[in-house]
Design a protein around this nucleic acid. Structure first.
Length: 229
DNA sequence: ACATTAACACCAC
DNA sequence: GTGGTGTTAATGT
Protein backbone atom coordinates (compact mmCIF):
# COMPACT_ATOMS: atom_id res chain seq x y z
CA UNK A 1 0.00 0.00 0.00
CA UNK A 2 1.74 3.10 -1.23
CA UNK A 3 0.50 6.28 0.33
CA UNK A 4 3.46 8.51 -0.36
CA UNK A 5 2.19 10.97 -2.91
CA UNK A 6 3.59 14.23 -1.67
CA UNK A 7 5.23 16.22 -4.38
CA UNK A 8 8.11 18.08 -2.86
CA UNK A 9 9.20 21.14 -4.72
CA UNK A 10 12.78 21.27 -5.77
CA UNK A 11 14.26 23.85 -8.08
CA UNK A 12 17.74 22.72 -9.13
CA UNK A 13 17.72 25.34 -11.87
CA UNK A 14 16.27 28.81 -11.61
CA UNK A 15 14.14 29.08 -14.73
CA UNK A 16 13.23 32.48 -16.04
CA UNK A 17 9.48 31.93 -16.18
CA UNK A 18 8.76 34.44 -18.89
CA UNK A 19 6.01 32.43 -20.53
CA UNK A 20 4.99 30.33 -17.59
CA UNK A 21 1.82 31.06 -15.67
CA UNK A 22 2.82 31.76 -12.07
CA UNK A 23 1.58 28.86 -10.05
CA UNK A 24 1.69 27.95 -6.42
CA UNK A 25 1.20 24.19 -6.22
CA UNK A 26 1.93 22.95 -2.73
CA UNK A 27 0.63 25.83 -0.64
CA UNK A 28 -2.95 25.77 -1.96
CA UNK A 29 -3.24 22.00 -2.41
CA UNK A 30 -4.92 21.26 0.91
CA UNK A 31 -7.21 24.28 0.85
CA UNK A 32 -10.86 23.67 -0.03
CA UNK A 33 -12.09 25.69 -2.98
CA UNK A 34 -15.03 28.05 -2.89
CA UNK A 35 -17.37 28.05 -5.88
CA UNK A 36 -18.99 31.36 -6.72
CA UNK A 37 -21.82 32.64 -8.86
CA UNK A 38 -21.14 35.26 -11.48
CA UNK A 39 -20.81 38.63 -9.81
CA UNK A 40 -20.21 37.26 -6.30
CA UNK A 41 -17.83 39.40 -4.26
CA UNK A 42 -14.53 37.72 -3.34
CA UNK A 43 -13.14 40.68 -1.44
CA UNK A 44 -13.87 44.38 -1.19
CA UNK A 45 -12.05 47.46 0.10
CA UNK A 46 -12.79 46.47 3.70
CA UNK A 47 -11.24 43.00 3.71
CA UNK A 48 -8.78 43.15 0.82
CA UNK A 49 -5.83 42.99 3.22
CA UNK A 50 -6.77 39.63 4.76
CA UNK A 51 -6.20 36.92 2.15
CA UNK A 52 -4.16 35.89 -0.84
CA UNK A 53 -6.17 33.92 -3.43
CA UNK A 54 -5.71 31.49 -6.24
CA UNK A 55 -8.14 30.92 -9.11
CA UNK A 56 -8.99 27.28 -9.77
CA UNK A 57 -11.92 27.68 -12.19
CA UNK A 58 -13.45 30.46 -14.25
CA UNK A 59 -12.23 34.05 -14.11
CA UNK A 60 -11.91 36.83 -11.54
CA UNK A 61 -12.24 40.55 -12.21
CA UNK A 62 -10.51 43.18 -10.07
CA UNK A 63 -11.82 46.71 -10.34
CA UNK A 64 -11.93 50.08 -8.68
CA UNK A 65 -14.68 52.69 -8.70
CA UNK A 66 -14.29 56.33 -9.74
CA UNK A 67 -17.26 58.68 -9.75
CA UNK A 68 -19.55 55.67 -9.61
CA UNK A 69 -17.98 54.13 -12.71
CA UNK A 70 -16.18 50.79 -12.65
CA UNK A 71 -12.61 50.69 -13.88
CA UNK A 72 -11.25 47.21 -14.55
CA UNK A 73 -7.77 46.96 -13.07
CA UNK A 74 -6.87 43.36 -13.87
CA UNK A 75 -8.35 39.91 -14.36
CA UNK A 76 -7.20 36.44 -13.40
CA UNK A 77 -7.51 32.93 -14.79
CA UNK A 78 -7.10 29.39 -13.42
CA UNK A 79 -3.70 28.71 -11.90
CA UNK A 80 -3.02 32.35 -11.12
CA UNK A 81 -2.69 33.87 -7.67
CA UNK A 82 -4.17 37.26 -6.97
CA UNK A 83 -4.12 39.85 -4.23
CA UNK A 84 -0.43 39.16 -3.48
CA UNK A 85 -0.28 42.90 -2.81
CA UNK A 86 -1.89 42.11 0.54
CA UNK A 87 1.47 40.63 1.58
CA UNK A 88 2.98 44.09 1.26
CA UNK A 89 2.02 46.86 3.58
CA UNK A 90 1.07 49.57 1.12
CA UNK A 91 -2.60 50.17 0.46
CA UNK A 92 -3.77 49.50 -3.07
CA UNK A 93 -6.73 51.83 -2.89
CA UNK A 94 -10.34 50.74 -3.02
CA UNK A 95 -10.31 47.49 -4.91
CA UNK A 96 -13.10 44.96 -5.33
CA UNK A 97 -12.72 41.42 -6.68
CA UNK A 98 -15.69 39.57 -8.15
CA UNK A 99 -16.33 36.33 -9.98
CA UNK A 100 -16.38 37.18 -13.68
CA UNK A 101 -17.97 33.97 -14.91
CA UNK A 102 -20.53 31.54 -13.55
CA UNK A 103 -18.95 28.73 -11.55
CA UNK A 104 -15.73 30.57 -10.75
CA UNK A 105 -13.81 28.82 -7.96
CA UNK A 106 -11.07 30.23 -5.75
CA UNK A 107 -8.94 29.13 -2.84
CA UNK A 108 -7.75 31.52 -0.19
CA UNK A 109 -5.04 31.59 2.44
CA UNK A 110 -4.59 34.19 5.14
CA UNK A 111 -1.82 36.74 4.79
CA UNK A 112 -0.42 35.56 8.11
CA UNK A 113 -0.24 31.92 7.04
CA UNK A 114 1.23 32.93 3.70
CA UNK A 115 4.01 34.91 5.38
CA UNK A 116 4.85 31.92 7.56
CA UNK A 117 4.92 29.65 4.53
CA UNK A 118 7.40 31.97 2.85
CA UNK A 119 9.83 31.69 5.76
CA UNK A 120 9.68 27.89 5.43
CA UNK A 121 9.91 27.88 1.65
CA UNK A 122 11.77 30.74 0.02
CA UNK A 123 10.72 29.70 -3.51
CA UNK A 124 7.24 30.93 -2.60
CA UNK A 125 8.60 34.42 -2.58
CA UNK A 126 9.63 34.06 -6.22
CA UNK A 127 6.10 33.00 -7.05
CA UNK A 128 4.76 36.11 -5.40
CA UNK A 129 7.13 38.23 -7.43
CA UNK A 130 6.29 36.53 -10.72
CA UNK A 131 2.58 36.86 -9.96
CA UNK A 132 2.91 40.59 -9.42
CA UNK A 133 5.19 40.86 -12.44
CA UNK A 134 2.68 39.04 -14.64
CA UNK A 135 -0.05 41.37 -13.46
CA UNK A 136 2.12 44.37 -14.33
CA UNK A 137 2.85 42.98 -17.80
CA UNK A 138 -0.85 42.39 -18.47
CA UNK A 139 -1.69 45.91 -17.42
CA UNK A 140 1.08 47.40 -19.56
CA UNK A 141 -0.12 45.39 -22.53
CA UNK A 142 -3.68 46.64 -22.05
CA UNK A 143 -2.47 50.22 -21.81
CA UNK A 144 -0.39 49.80 -24.97
CA UNK A 145 -3.36 48.28 -26.78
CA UNK A 146 -5.73 51.06 -25.72
CA UNK A 147 -3.21 53.72 -26.73
CA UNK A 148 -2.14 52.36 -30.10
CA UNK A 149 -5.08 50.44 -31.51
CA UNK A 150 -8.62 51.32 -32.46
CA UNK A 151 -11.47 49.42 -30.88
CA UNK A 152 -11.84 46.89 -33.70
CA UNK A 153 -8.16 46.00 -33.57
CA UNK A 154 -8.35 45.72 -29.80
CA UNK A 155 -11.18 43.22 -30.08
CA UNK A 156 -9.15 41.21 -32.58
CA UNK A 157 -6.01 41.37 -30.49
CA UNK A 158 -7.75 40.40 -27.28
CA UNK A 159 -9.62 37.61 -29.01
CA UNK A 160 -6.42 36.16 -30.47
CA UNK A 161 -4.36 36.31 -27.30
CA UNK A 162 -7.14 35.19 -24.98
CA UNK A 163 -8.07 32.30 -27.27
CA UNK A 164 -4.51 31.04 -27.60
CA UNK A 165 -4.00 31.34 -23.87
CA UNK A 166 -7.28 29.93 -22.58
CA UNK A 167 -8.91 28.17 -25.53
CA UNK A 168 -8.63 24.52 -26.52
CA UNK A 169 -7.28 23.56 -29.87
CA UNK A 170 -9.70 21.32 -31.78
CA UNK A 171 -8.37 20.38 -35.20
CA UNK A 172 -7.68 23.62 -37.00
CA UNK A 173 -10.06 25.55 -34.75
CA UNK A 174 -9.94 26.96 -31.25
CA UNK A 175 -12.77 26.69 -28.76
CA UNK A 176 -13.18 29.08 -25.85
CA UNK A 177 -15.61 27.83 -23.24
CA UNK A 178 -17.29 29.35 -21.39
CA UNK A 179 -17.62 32.44 -23.56
CA UNK A 180 -17.11 35.83 -21.98
CA UNK A 181 -19.91 38.36 -22.30
CA UNK A 182 -19.39 41.25 -24.69
CA UNK A 183 -19.71 43.52 -21.68
CA UNK A 184 -16.74 41.86 -19.98
CA UNK A 185 -14.62 41.93 -23.12
CA UNK A 186 -15.47 45.61 -23.44
CA UNK A 187 -14.40 46.38 -19.90
CA UNK A 188 -11.05 44.66 -20.49
CA UNK A 189 -10.24 46.37 -23.77
CA UNK A 190 -11.75 49.70 -22.77
CA UNK A 191 -14.77 50.00 -25.02
CA UNK A 192 -18.52 49.61 -24.93
CA UNK A 193 -20.39 46.37 -25.38
CA UNK A 194 -22.08 47.50 -28.59
CA UNK A 195 -18.69 48.09 -30.16
CA UNK A 196 -17.59 44.60 -29.14
CA UNK A 197 -20.80 43.11 -30.50
CA UNK A 198 -20.46 44.78 -33.88
CA UNK A 199 -16.76 43.90 -34.14
CA UNK A 200 -17.45 40.25 -33.32
CA UNK A 201 -20.35 40.15 -35.77
CA UNK A 202 -18.10 41.45 -38.52
CA UNK A 203 -15.61 38.65 -37.78
CA UNK A 204 -18.47 36.14 -37.76
CA UNK A 205 -19.76 37.40 -41.08
CA UNK A 206 -16.29 36.87 -42.53
CA UNK A 207 -16.30 33.28 -41.28
CA UNK A 208 -13.30 33.84 -39.02
CA UNK A 209 -15.15 33.08 -35.79
CA UNK A 210 -18.42 31.60 -34.59
CA UNK A 211 -20.04 32.25 -31.24
CA UNK A 212 -23.15 32.02 -29.13
CA UNK A 213 -23.86 32.52 -25.43
CA UNK A 214 -21.99 29.47 -24.22
CA UNK A 215 -18.89 29.21 -26.39
CA UNK A 216 -16.78 30.93 -29.01
CA UNK A 217 -14.88 29.26 -31.85
CA UNK A 218 -12.01 30.78 -33.78
CA UNK A 219 -12.25 29.08 -37.17
CA UNK A 220 -9.27 30.75 -38.76
CA UNK A 221 -6.63 31.98 -36.32
CA UNK A 222 -4.25 32.97 -39.12
CA UNK A 223 -6.84 35.22 -40.71
CA UNK A 224 -7.52 36.72 -37.29
CA UNK A 225 -3.85 37.46 -36.72
CA UNK A 226 -3.53 38.86 -40.25
CA UNK A 227 -5.97 41.62 -39.29
CA UNK A 228 -3.41 42.99 -36.87
CA UNK A 229 -0.79 43.83 -39.50
C1' DA B 1 -14.07 58.66 -39.88
C1' DC B 2 -14.54 56.65 -35.54
C1' DA B 3 -16.57 55.79 -31.35
C1' DT B 4 -19.94 56.29 -27.55
C1' DT B 5 -24.53 56.47 -25.70
C1' DA B 6 -29.32 55.70 -25.59
C1' DA B 7 -33.00 53.25 -26.99
C1' DC B 8 -35.63 49.28 -28.29
C1' DA B 9 -36.75 44.55 -29.67
C1' DC B 10 -35.59 39.86 -29.23
C1' DC B 11 -34.20 35.74 -27.05
C1' DA B 12 -32.49 32.42 -23.56
C1' DC B 13 -32.22 30.78 -19.06
C1' DG C 1 -38.28 38.77 -15.08
C1' DT C 2 -33.33 39.34 -15.73
C1' DG C 3 -29.44 39.54 -18.39
C1' DG C 4 -27.19 39.11 -22.85
C1' DT C 5 -27.38 40.18 -27.71
C1' DG C 6 -28.43 42.65 -32.40
C1' DT C 7 -29.35 46.92 -34.38
C1' DT C 8 -30.08 51.71 -35.26
C1' DA C 9 -30.30 56.70 -34.47
C1' DA C 10 -28.40 60.62 -32.29
C1' DT C 11 -24.38 62.83 -30.70
C1' DG C 12 -19.50 63.96 -29.89
C1' DT C 13 -14.51 64.41 -31.31
Amino acid sequence: MMTIDFRRETFPIALPGIFSVPKCPSLFDEIPETTLKKGAVIFNELNAHLFVYKVTKGMVRLYSIHDGKEMLEDYYQPGEMFNCEALLHNDQGEMVAKAMTQGTAVKKISVHAFRQAITANASLYEKVLSSISASLSRTQERLRSITLLNSQQRVVQFLASHTMKSGRRVGYEWVVKPAMTHQEIGSIIGTGRQTVTTALNKLRKNGIIHFNRSYLIVRDMEALLRLLD
